[in-house]
Design a protein around this nucleic acid. Structure first.
Length: 336
DNA sequence: TGCAATGATTGAAC
DNA sequence: GTTCAATCATTGCA
């Protein structure tokens, strides 16, 4: 032990210092290589090394004496400095600055999904978006919409409660470590900078845990989202009334069954479906040959042929003069 | 249960 | 961007 103390003294360059020099770190550095053993410092270290062999009371008394020793601050200051230079400098390089881009990405995603940030708006908007994507109207208050919102709220609640727990644990642990280090700094060289660095390390560790929480929350939201988006294939037939409205438009515009954007919007409103559903319906209707219903006539010749077929076998029907393609129903022709 | 009807999706063409 | 054509997947009926 004594040898170790001697080695330590030599190692940290405390040999050859006067009392005044040791009291003043600047002067101490000046004399670091001067070779004369310094009795006071030696005594202190000697006492530290032998303290473990003493009884608790004796040790406490000695500890107190050491704490009050006039050379103690100087010794700790030098030890801290050496420690800083030898060990902690390497860690300093690894310290990162600025927010982690991955955390930023996760934060943005959670914000967009309505999990992070204020509940109003975000969650509802996300739910509405999913409802729309699933083919429903955002205003229809469908069960799916409600269910999605409910599940999202559950995820949100769990996320916030876990986040709160982590933050609380982080603060508690940081306080604990800081108090511990402050306490220990009375008996071993722990500089405020080292405490600060330790706090940084703890925060980074907790940030990593937080990132994992954010990541798993994002995954949960994605799974939920895909589950509800997959429900899009679970189609519902349009109501009879909606089908009637769409058919009416289609057959009234057989010559040009391509509703304008405005017409689509109006039809969508009338049928309580989305514009894209209207587009889908017309797209399907145009290419699918309807049984027993007239199809769009592309040319004037087609229309004339159609009229000829419809009027065949009927007498007294005036000749129809056509200047453009159109569509006639049997009921249009069979009249007195 | 099989099958036709039908809403939705996808990829190519424009 | 829209439209078409092929296809998928579900619904509803006999």
């Amino acid at each position: 032990m004594e040898n170790q103390a001697g080695m330590m003294l030599g190692h940290i360059g405390l040999s050859g210092l006067s009392q005044e020099d040791v009291g003043d770190p600047i002067n101490m550095r000046k004399h670091q290589n001067m070779g004369q053993p310094q009795q006071d410092i030696g005594d202190i270290l000697q006492q530290i090394m032998t303290m473990t062999d003493e009884s608790l009371d004796e040790a406490q008394a000695r500890k107190h004496a050491l704490n009050c020793h006039r050379m103690k601050p100087a010794l700790f200051s030098v030890l801290c400095e050496m420690k800083e230079k030898m060990a902690l400098g390497i860690r300093g390089i690894q310290e990162e600055d600025g927010p982690d881009p991955q955390i930023l990405r996760l934060d943005n995603m959670l914000l967009a999904e309505g999990v992070a940030g204020l509940e109003k708006g975000g969650a509802s908007a996300a739910a509405a978006a999913v409802a729309l994507a699933a083919g429903g109207s955002p205003n229809d208050g469908s069960l799916q919409h409600e269910e999605y919102r409910e599940k999202l709220a559950q995820i949100r609640q769990m996320y916030h409660s876990e986040l709160e727990k982590y933050e609380q644990a982080c603060n508690e642990f940081t306080d604990h470590v800081m108090n511990l280090l402050r306490e220990q700094s009375r008996t071993r060289p722990v500089s405020p900078k080292e405490i600060e660095r330790m706090v940084g390390i703890i925060h980074r560790k907790f940030n990593t845990i937080q990132m994992q929480l954010k990541q798993s929350t994002c995954e949960a939201v994605m799974i939920l989202r895909s589950r509800f988006l997959d429900a899009r294939r679970k189609r519902r037939n349009f109501s009879k009334q909606a089908a009637e409205v769409l058919n009416e438009y289609f057959y009234s515009n057989l010559a040009n069954p391509y509703p304008s954007e405005e017409a689509k919007e109006e039809l969508a409103k009338k049928c309580s479906i989305t514009v894209s559903q209207v587009s889908n319906w017309f797209g399907n209707k145009r290419i699918r040959p309807a049984k027993g219903t007239p199809q769009p006539l592309q040319t004037l010749e087609d229309t004339r042929h159609h009229v000829t077929l419809l009027t065949a076998g009927y007498e007294g029907i005036p000749e129809v003069t056509l200047s453009s393609p159109c569509c006639l129903h049997v009921s249009d022709v069979r009249q007195d």
